[in-house]
Write a protein that binds this DNA or RNA. Structure first.
Length: 647
DNA sequence: GTTATACTAAACAACC
DNA sequence: AGGTTGTTTAGTATAA
């Protein structure tokens, strides 16, 4: 409580500067989820299919109802789609179903947005149908209103659900992007952008939307549109982005009843407007209707420094997501290729909802991959972190998140991360100011184990932190204190007097001792791992395969080619190992086959509080093998002054 | 409600 | 004297 407020204060104090706070960490976590979207492609197909069916349906409706029919643009008839997708009918899913989808967390925020928009469109269609029907068989005005209300409520519910989901993702920690973030090599464009450039950018974006509308092409110059949550509804989007859209959009309509529809549609589809509030990051001004929203948009979010800065933040968010998405696509592709031969998907439990089922299907496939490992537990058992407060859009948080988080993110995020995850995220952590989901102890240990001599001075540990995690380039006082605190507190860290001074080493035994406790935070994960072990499910195989693919040997640390990657990965294996130990020690699993993971367990790398003097000699296999050019680079880096305490 | 773990903050001492 | 390192205590949050 007190701490909470303290954090808030701090956060607001240094504003925008520091995005390293709880929310961001959580965002980071959700990035992992995003990354694991094996459902992505299926979902996309699904959405595509829905769109097409929508179009067809719309045409049919229009023909039936005698409304003016637009020019046909159905170049693609019933295309060939996967069975699961083909079976789907464009139906409006219920909030409950939506909830289900959200809880399964198989969709990215973007996908959800897309889905939501589709649902909105479908609902609107239904409204249209109702209204049309009313024309044919005069419906009570009241009835229509009621129906509309019902639809809107449903829509509202879904929006809330989506919002909640986004919030939860965000709180799980996804990414942190600050406007002034110095080290984001990913977006050189956005980085040094000045308002004028942004103005230009705005123009580009706007025009690109228009172009997209015209030729639905992927513009390559600036891929914002593809990632902007709203991208799936380009035809509407452009209308809105263009400030004149409101007037342009006033099409002459035949019936008075339909007159309001375009508006409504716009209001529902505008990415910056929904729920009666302005969704401009950090705004949330209440706008009665779409018109007032447009006014608000033009007045409050005109092209000025603030808006451009906010835009820049949003761009960074998007770009981060894009990057992640690209990686995931790649992985998905590889996975699919890999699984193509033996795709059996034994447990693709059909679900009532088409969308869900297809997503589930793809998810099932994904479960065979280590990437999805972290999600496996979360999906069925762990409820989405209930989120009740906070305004909440990624950008909003990114901008307001400052200072170190004081709230400890749940342990479950500490653990269920596969080696591949951490390995893949390494770059991410280096560049994005996202709190790594590991405990200080784990990180410290990692830093020490990574060193050639498996011993580091305090300062070297500091440097490792700042080098490996952008997050630790800020609030040095805080986390350094924590590091020192951890070093002193945990028995697993042994201080050794060296010629150079004092160095810290890891007592692996002690470290292992305390692990089980921690991992116990996620029983579902353990369960999953266990089952996979016991029954040699594809998950296990895939896990190992993936580890191999990632050049991450099963804890033969000595053979790690890439020390940083490997060691970070090993940290995660430690987590998993802990899980295994824990469960096994619980007696819940004494199966002899418990051990792929066990096998990879460090047989006990612990070198007893090394003789301070000269460990030049190979202390262990690990020590020598860890050495690599890469590492030398790191070493050099290590001594560099780190830019910290920017505040 | 209890317990264990983790994080943050801070006080303090010793050392450089 | 001031900064760093190391220890310790306290308060809080979270999950089992």
């Amino acid at each position: 409580m007190m701490q909470e407020s303290g954090t808030e204060t701090k956060s607001n104090g240094s504003a925008i500067q520091n995005g390293a706070s709880g929310g961001n960490h959580l965002l980071e976590c959700s990035l992992r989820e995003v990354r694991s979207n094996d459902a992505l492609q299926v979902a996309r197909q699904l959405l595509l299919q829905q769109q097409q069916q929508q179009q067809q349906q719309q045409q049919q409706q229009q023909q039936v109802s005698g409304l003016k029919s637009p020019k046909r643009n159905d170049k693609q008839p019933a295309l060939q789609v996967p069975v699961s997708v083909a079976m789907m009918t464009p139906q409006v899913i219920t909030p409950q179903q939506m909830q289900q989808i959200l809880q399964q967390q198989v969709l990215t925020p973007q996908q959800l947005q897309v889905l939501l928009q589709q649902q909105q469109a479908l609902m609107l269609q239904q409204v249209i149908v109702s209204l049309t029907a009313a024309q044919v068989a005069p419906m009570d005005q009241q009835q229509v209103a009621t129906q509309q209300l019902a639809f809107q409520q449903q829509l509202l519910q879904m929006q809330q659900l989506q919002q909640q989901h986004l919030l939860s993702l965000q709180r799980q920690g996804l990414l942190t992007i600050q406007p002034g973030q110095p080290t984001l090599p990913l977006q050189p464009l956005a980085q040094g952008m000045i308002p004028t450039e942004l103005q230009q950018l705005w123009k580009e974006v706007t025009s690109s939307h228009t172009a997209e509308e015209a030729a639905s092409n992927n513009h390559s110059s600036l891929d914002l549109s593809t990632t902007c949550v709203s991208s799936s509804a380009p035809s509407k989007t452009s209308l809105i982005i263009n400030p004149h859209a409101s007037t342009n959009g006033q099409l002459s309509v035949h019936t008075p009843k339909r007159e309001s529809l375009p508006h409504e549609e716009h209001s529902h589809s505008h990415p910056l407007y929904g729920h009666g509030v302005c969704k401009w990051p950090g705004c949330e001004a209440v706008c009665e209707d779409f018109q007032s929203f447009l006014k608000h948009l033009n007045s409050e979010h005109a092209l000025d420094d603030r808006s451009t800065a906010q835009c820049r933040v949003q761009m960074q968010v998007v770009q981060q997501l894009e990057l992640q998405l690209a990686k995931d696509k790649e992985r998905l592709q590889a996975m699919m290729t890999h699984l193509h031969v033996k795709s059996t998907e034994p447990k693709a439990t059909p679900q009532p909802l088409n969308l869900v089922s297809s997503v589930t299907l793809s998810k099932t496939a994904s479960e065979a991959s280590p990437q999805s490992l972290p999600h496996t537990p979360t999906t069925p058992t762990a409820p989405i972190t209930p989120v009740t407060q906070g305004p909440s859009v990624i950008t909003t948080t990114s901008m307001h998140n400052v200072g170190p988080i004081r709230r400890r993110y749940s342990d479950k995020y500490n653990v269920p991360i596969s080696s591949a995850d951490i390995a893949q995220n390494q770059e991410f952590y280096k560049n994005a100011e996202v709190r790594p989901p590991f405990t200080y102890a784990s990180l410290i240990r990692q830093a020490i184990l990574e060193s050639p001599e498996k011993q580091l001075t305090l300062n070297e540990i500091y440097n490792w932190f700042t080098r490996m995690f952008a997050y630790f380039r800020r609030n040095a006082a805080t986390w350094k204190n924590a590091v020192r605190h951890n070093l002193s507190l945990h028995k697993c860290f042994v201080r050794v007097e060296n010629v150079k001074g004092a160095v810290w080493t890891v007592d692996e035994l002690e470290f292992q001792k305390r692990r089980p406790q921690k991992i116990s935070g996620n029983p579902s994960l353990i369960k999953n791992i266990q089952t996979s072990h016991t029954y040699c499910t594809p998950l296990n195989a895939a896990l190992q395969a993936s580890m191999a693919e990632n050049s991450i040997p099963l804890y033969t640390t000595a053979s790690m080619g890439n020390p940083t990657l490997g060691n970070l990965a090993s940290a995660m294996r430690e987590e998993l190992n802990g899980a295994m130990e824990h469960t096994n020690s619980n007696g819940s699993d004494s199966s002899p086959g418990r051990s792929p993971m066990q096998a990879m367990h460090p047989v006990h790398v612990k070198e007893e509080p090394l003789d301070p003097d000269e460990n030049e000699g190979p202390l262990s296999l690990v020590t020598t093998a860890n050495h690599s050019p890469d590492f030398d680079h790191d070493r050099d880096y290590e001594d560099e002054p780190v830019n910290e305490d920017i505040e």
